[in-house]
């Protein structure tokens, strides 16, 4: 078995594109769910409208990269207001139902035959990010120790981590401010906050929008990195992986999404390439290489269950705080 190669792949993926995308998605969820207590089960929808906003603007409309980014952000804001305005006055579960349904509706619209000329059906939109790679200052791939990125990967990964850092600093500033104090109080008890003269509805709408816009940058990174927007990438499992990342790292912790995303992708790829390696080298004979994909999710699921049992606050969370009953 080639352990060097196994670890090299795991480390590269642990700091690579997927880790960036899910860190951004989870930072948005952290604002919504971690700090405000909003159950947004449609984060994939925010990434999808951003990615399609970008792709359609560039590939179909012929607009520039920058206009495409603005269109994507605007789409995320509109989606947040559409989802939040009717539901945030109601009990918490209504937002959950509406967001998960809306994200699936969006995915089905994007892949539908009817809109094929605009959204490209199940093939999506491809090769629209050349403007972005034209700005690439790296003129060769980077290979440091086990880490190995092509020049284009290096460019988008660098921009991606800069975005992650900027978003995290914003979250830190927001949650340290009096605004953040109201947000955290809403997570604990909305009625108490209402009784203190704050418009809970307005704050929840703001948190949903900010979290959606932060998450939507994950959609930009995904679209640009893959030079492609595919409807089925933005399914419910994207949302649930983002939740797994957030809870693994520690909800309501500024660095929770980053740590969670790195550990999640490192672990997943480690399991995956270790198993494939073991199967192809004949060390394991009772599974076939085609089954590795499923089995890695079993192992991942069991690991997450163990984490919830023995460390429910996540890697960075504070157990003492979790045990204070939120009455």
């Amino acid at each position: 078995m080639d352990w060097g190669n196994v670890f090299s792949q795991a480390i590269t993926q642990g700091i690579g594109i997927q880790a960036v995308i899910f860190a951004l998605a989870a930072i948005g969820l952290n604002v919504q769910f971690g700090y405000t207590g909003l159950l947004n089960f449609g984060q994939s929808g925010f990434l999808a409208v951003a990615a399609y906003g970008l792709g359609v603007s560039i590939a179909m409309m012929g607009w520039s990269l920058w206009v495409g980014l603005l269109v994507g952000i605007a789409a995320a804001v509109v989606l947040a207001l559409l989802l939040g305005a009717p539901t945030l006055r109601l009990r918490a579960d209504y937002l959950a139902i509406v967001t998960i349904a809306a994200a699936e509706i969006l995915r089905l619209v994007f892949r539908s035959v009817t809109f094929n000329p605009v959204f490209g059906g199940s093939d999506g939109i491809n090769r629209f990010a050349d403007d972005f790679y034209a700005l690439n200052p790296f003129n060769a791939g980077v290979k440091i120790g086990p880490v190995d990125f092509s020049e284009n990967d290096m460019w988008i990964v660098t921009i991606g981590w800069i975005l992650v850092v900027v978003m995290s600093v914003l979250v830190f500033l927001m949650m340290r401010s009096p605004w953040g104090r109201v947000i955290k109080a809403i997570r604990e008890d909305e009625d108490a906050v209402r009784s203190l003269g704050k418009s809970v509805y307005a704050y929840k709408l703001q948190a949903l929008t900010i979290g959606g816009v932060m998450g939507c940058f994950g959609g930009f990174v995904a679209a640009i990195a893959l030079q492609s927007v595919q409807p089925d990438y933005y399914g419910t499992d994207l949302t649930f992986f983002a939740y797994a990342v957030l809870i693994l790292g520690g909800a309501a912790r500024v660095l929770g999404p980053i740590v969670g995303s790195v550990v999640f992708w490192f672990g997943l790829v480690l399991i995956d390439s270790a198993l494939s390696n073991a199967v192809s080298s004949g060390a394991i004979t009772f599974i076939q290489s085609t089954q590795v994909g499923q089995i890695r999710y079993w192992i991942l699921g069991i690991s997450l269950m163990l984490l919830m049992i023995y460390r429910p606050q996540g890697i960075l969370g504070d157990k003492k705080e979790l045990s204070l009953d939120a009455r």
């Binding site: 104090r181 955290k184 703001q206 204070l324």
Partner: peptide, 26 residues
């Protein structure tokens, strides 16, 4: 509000705080 400190609970009561506005917070 259990996970806020006593002082934060008190601060939450004050009205017309500029820092509670979205555009002032950063």
């Amino acid at each position: 509000l259990s996970r806020l400190t006593v002082m934060e609970n008190m601060r939450l009561g004050a009205q017309d705080q500029r820092g509670e506005k979205l555009f002032a917070l950063i």
